[in-house]
Design a protein around this nucleic acid. Structure first.
Lengths: 138, 138
DNA sequence: TAACTGATTGACGTTCACGTAAAGGGAAGG
DNA sequence: CCTTCCCTTTACGTGAACGTCAATCAGTTA
C-alpha cells in the first residue's frame, strides 16, 4: 500500500533537467512542440516527472546516434503504453538498423572523398614542387 | 600570330554547361551571385568561355569533396592571376588538408555512433527475446 | 512596494545551397 | 501577328533544430 512511495515522487523543473543533461530550455520546449515531451503544469510552469526525464534521456540518446526528432517521436509514441514495450523495442531496433545502414553508406562516401582529397593533394604537391623549380630556374 | 586560334574560341550557353555537368541553371546563377563565376554577356544572356567552364569544373570537384562554396570561391579568386597559380595551388592544398582532417573526425564520430547502435541493437534483441519468452510463459 | 529570479509565449532569425514560381525580354519560325 | 523556346530577374520557400529577442507573469526577497 505504500508501494507508491517506493520512488520519491520527485519532479523536476526545466532548468534542473537542462543542467543535468546539458541542454537548453529552448530545446526542451521545442521537443514539446514537436510532441516528444508533455510535462505537467503547475500554473504556467512545466513540471517534469521521472517519466518525462526518462523520455528526455531517450531523446538525447537518439540524437546522439543520429536519429531525427521525428524518428525519436515515433519511438516514444510507443513508450509505456501497456504492452507497447515490445512494439517500442521492435521499432527502435528497426530504426537502429536503418541508421546503421545509412551511417555505413555515409562512411563510405566520406572514405571516397578522403581518397580523392589525398590524390588531389598529392598532385598539388607535385605541381607546387615543379612551380618552385621553375622559379629557381627563372 | 594565329596562336589565338589554337583553341577554337568557342563559348557555351548556360544550358549547354548544365547538360554537360548535370547541373541546373539555377545553380550556375547562384554560383555567379556568390562570386564564383562571372561569365560574359551577349545582351542579357550569359556566355561562358572555356575559362568559365574550367572554373565550373573546379567548383563541382570542390563540392564533391565537401568544400563549401565560400571555400571554393577563395580558391577560385586566385585562379589565373599572373603568378597566382602557385598561390592557388598552395591554398587549395591547405583547404584539402583541412577537409581531410575534418572528414576523418567526422568518420570517427560515425564509427562511434555505429558502435553504439550495434550495442543498443544487441540489447534490444535480447530484451525482445525475453519479452517473447514472457508471452510464451503467460 | 520595488526589484529580482525564473518561467512563459510568440515570433522572427540562422545556415546552406539551391527549388520554385511569377513575369517578362528577344529572336526564330510559321 | 502569334507561338515557341531559351533566357532573364526578383523574390519567396525549403529543411532541421534550435537561437535570440521581446513582452509578460508569478513568486520571493529586500
Amino acid at each position: 500500500m505504500t508501494a507508491k512511495l517506493r520512488r520519491p515522487a520527485m519532479t523536476f523543473t526545466i532548468t534542473q533537467l537542462c543542467r543535468e543533461f546539458g541542454a537548453t530550455a529552448r530545446a526542451l520546449r521545442y521537443y514539446e512542440d514537436q510532441g516528444l515531451l508533455a510535462p505537467a503544469r503547475q500554473g504556467m510552469a512545466r513540471v517534469y516527472s521521472y517519466r518525462d526525464r526518462a523520455r528526455l534521456q531517450i531523446i538525447l540518446n537518439g540524437k546522439r546516434v543520429g536519429l531525427s526528432l521525428a524518428e525519436i517521436r515515433d519511438i516514444l509514441s510507443l513508450y509505456g503504453q501497456g504492452d507497447g514495450e515490445v512494439a517500442q523495442n521492435a521499432l527502435a531496433l528497426r530504426k537502429f538498423r536503418e541508421r546503421i545502414v545509412a551511417f555505413e553508406r555515409q562512411r563510405q562516401e566520406i572514405d571516397e572523398a578522403i581518397d580523392e582529397l589525398r590524390r588531389a593533394s598529392a598532385r598539388m604537391e607535385q605541381r607546387l614542387a615543379e612551380q618552385q623549380g621553375d622559379r629557381q630556374v627563372a
